[in-house]
Amino acid sequence: MFNFVAMQVENDVKQMEEQFQAKIDADIRIEPRDWMPEKYRKTLIRQMSQHAHSEVVGMLPEANWITRAPSLRRKVALLAKVQDEAGHGLYLYSACETLGADREETIDDLHSGKAKYSSIFNYPTITWADIGAIGWLVDGAAIVNQVALQKTSYGPYARAMVKICKEESFHQRQGYEIITVLANGTPAQKAMAQDALNRWWWPSLMMFGPTDADSPNTQQSMAWRIKRHTNDELRQMFIDATVKQAEVAGLTIPDKDLKWNEERGHYDFGEIDWEEFYNVIKGNGPCNKQRIEARRKAKEEGMWVREAAMAYAEKQKSKVKAA
C-alpha cells in the first residue's frame, strides 16, 4: 500500500515536470502560482537575488562620485542614475518574494557572503571618467544580458527586465556621452577617458561569466529558458557592439589581439585573465570588503530607524483599536 502511494506521487511529479517543460518549450510564461520544479525555483531565486544585490552594491562605486561630480548637470544626472539602480534593486527583491524568498533573509545572505553579486562592482572608481566607463561598458554589458532576459521563462522576472532595460539603455547612452565629452576634451581629459577604458574593459568582459565550457549551470538554465543565450554568445555580442563605439570616441581598446574575423563575422579577442575573475569572486578584489562593509553598515545603522518606524506603526494601530 505504502509503496503504491509513493509510486503514485512519483508519477504525479514526473507528469507535472513534463507539463512544465511543455509549457516552457511552447514559450508560455511561468507565473508565481504555477507549479514548478524545486530546482527551477531555487535557480531563479539565486539568479534574481544576485541581480538585485548587484543593483544595490552597484550603487556604491557610482555614489562615490556624487559629491565630486564636475558640474551641476552631471551631479543631478548621476544622483538620478544611482536612484534608478536602487529602484531596480527594490523591484527585483520583490520579484524574488513572488517565489517565497524573504527580503531580509536574502539581504542577510549578501552580507554574510553566502550570496554573490556582479564582481565588476569590486573594482574602484578612481576618476570621474570611471563614471562614464561604468555607464558605457558595465551598463552596456548588463543590457546585452538583460535584453535576452526579457524573454526569460519566469513572468515577473521577464516583466521586470522590460522596465529595467529601458532605464539601463538610457544610462548606457549617458555613460558613453560622458566618455565622448572627455575623449574630445583637453589632453588630460582624454587621458582620463583612456585610463578608465584600460581598467574597465577586461572586467566588463568577465561580467558574462566563465566560458561555456566552464559554466556548470548553463545547460539546465537554457533548457528551462531562464537563460536564452550562453555566456560566450553574449560576450561576443557585447564586444562586437562596443569596438565601433570606442573607435568613434577615438579611444583604444586595451587588447592587442582584438581583430575583425571576416570568416566568423565577429571580432576575435585576447585571452581573459580567469585567475583574476575567480579571485575577485572569491573575495580578493580591490573593494570586496569595502562594498559589503558599506552595505552592512547601512543596515546596522538603519536598524534603530526601522525599529522606530515599526514601534510607531504599532502604537497607531492600538490607538485605532482603542478608539
Binding site: 550603487m59 536612484q83 538603519g302 526601522r306
Partner: peptide
C-alpha cells in the same frame, strides 16, 4: 546619503 540610507525605500 545616496547608497547608504537606512532602508532602500528611504534611500530613494
Amino acid at each position: 546619503w545616496c547608497g547608504h540610507g537606512p532602508i532602500l525605500e528611504e534611500d530613494i
